[in-house]
Design a protein around this nucleic acid. Structure first.
Lengths: 244, 244
DNA sequence: CAGTGGTCTAGACCACTGC
DNA sequence: CAGTGGTCTAGACCACTGT
């Protein structure tokens, strides 16, 4: 590791070149987990650049999880332990429109009810939260593509109580009108129950991908939604690229 | 939008405070999609800080997808169109160990074969790629928790041909010994076929979460793995937090 | 062609923390 | 307590691109 020879490729900004060069050394095994990198000042001399530029490259590697840094100790190649892949989740209308399909939706249920016990137990809603509860089916042409069951917290978004969802689906309305600060997703495989099977026009018990999303702002849940996709039509795709 | 009053909370580094403050304004609707932010110099005056610091905060907002920036035009609040959630994917051993379970695995098949037609057609392997093909079952105690079918490209990782996987599972060995630069995941729900059902000790047709991962480096696939989890035991969780 | 962001510099001070 | 990273500054030049 004494003779760490970083080959910069001259493509793009300096900090990107440095990041790529180090990522490459880590990828090809020249730098192995636990190895120590030169400190920032040495790297400045090595690369004839300034400390801010080196620091920017190293910070990027930290957020990619490729290295860890400790004051006084130095910078070290991280153990590769888990893979973080950004999973992009779009609304049904965006997906269907993107694939050239003919999107429409139908509201099967729309009621105002107290948050259901099961969601209170999961600490998704507070005990006295009033909600607007909706069941929506999204279609690609005549084929049901996604079943959505949603609760909107009327304590968090009171103006949603009177919105008309005939033209704009609840998901799109929320996306455009309510900002959230955090979201948490759970993905599971479930067998379609009778009701879901009927709405989705599939056999009861068919394997379905089920995505649950809790969206909240400042500790209070804005909305909770459960999306059910027939397994044969839906794949979620994520991609990870640390070193370019 | 003239009187954008950013309240800094004094917690942590300046660039984080600025990022949080702007994320908050976007979240609470004070700044709406399409709104223009003050330019960097104005924001420096406003916050009595330097341009690099402001730029760092704004760059973070860009990578969070909360704003877009265009030279000469300015910085604008982005349309919230899709949600990118980092999905952390661990190995079976890591998950079972983390939950306090008793991990073990069993190798059901281990052979060297040419890449199968179906994976060549999907452009995952090249036409003449030799592979090591494995089927591994991961257990939590006595209960099967995950079925893994894996192909390792022996053109990309020739040294894996002779590795003994009795003590260390192929997944762990690869994680520690082979670096990859990119990974792509697909998640789907499938009905367990007879073979999977038998290995996992579940009923045939049971809904299972199936995760496929292709890992590659410099255009060449290192390994392709298909993980099958009984739906009732596995949930993948992702989280997204733009403004803190 | 002027306004904006993208990048970079050569310093500085400070906060940790391993030695 | 000294080495390291974390942050910040007050400038600079340049690359875009809308007007």
């Amino acid at each position: 590791m004494n003779s760490l020879a970083l080959r910069l490729d001259g493509e793009g900004p300096m900090y990107e070149q440095i990041r790529r060069a180090l990522a490459r050394e880590i990828s090809n095994g020249a730098l192995r987990p636990g190895d120590r990198l030169p400190n920032e000042m040495d790297m400045c001399d090595l690369l004839a650049t300034s400390r801010m530029t080196v620091n920017r490259a190293l910070s990027a590697l930290v957020s990619d999880g490729l290295i860890v840094r400790r004051r006084k100790a130095g910078s070290f190649v991280a153990d590769q332990s888990a893979i973080d892949a950004p999973l992009t989740i779009s609304t049904a209308e965006q997906e269907i429109a993107a694939s050239g399909g003919d999107y429409r939706f139908s509201i099967l249920l729309d009621e105002q009810v107290p948050a259901p016990r099961v969601l209170i137990d999961r600490q998704i809603f507070g005990i006295a939260d009033p909600t607007r509860h909706l069941i929506v089916c999204h279609f690609d042409g005549d084929e049901p593509a996604q079943l959505e069951e949603r609760w909107i917290n009327l304590n968090a978004v009171p103006q949603s109580a009177d919105v008309n969802f005939d033209d704009e689906s609840p998901g799109m309305w929320l996306l455009g009108n309510v900002a959230w600060t955090q979201a948490e997703h759970e993905i599971a495989a479930v067998a379609a129950d009778d009701e879901a099977a009927e709405h989705l026009q599939i056999g009861s018990g068919t394997a379905c991908l089920q995505l649950e999303r809790r969206t909240w702002i400042d500790e209070i849940t804005v909305t909770f939604v459960r999306l059910t996709y027939p397994g044969h039509m839906k794949r979620l795709v994520g991609r990870f690229k640390p070193g370019e």
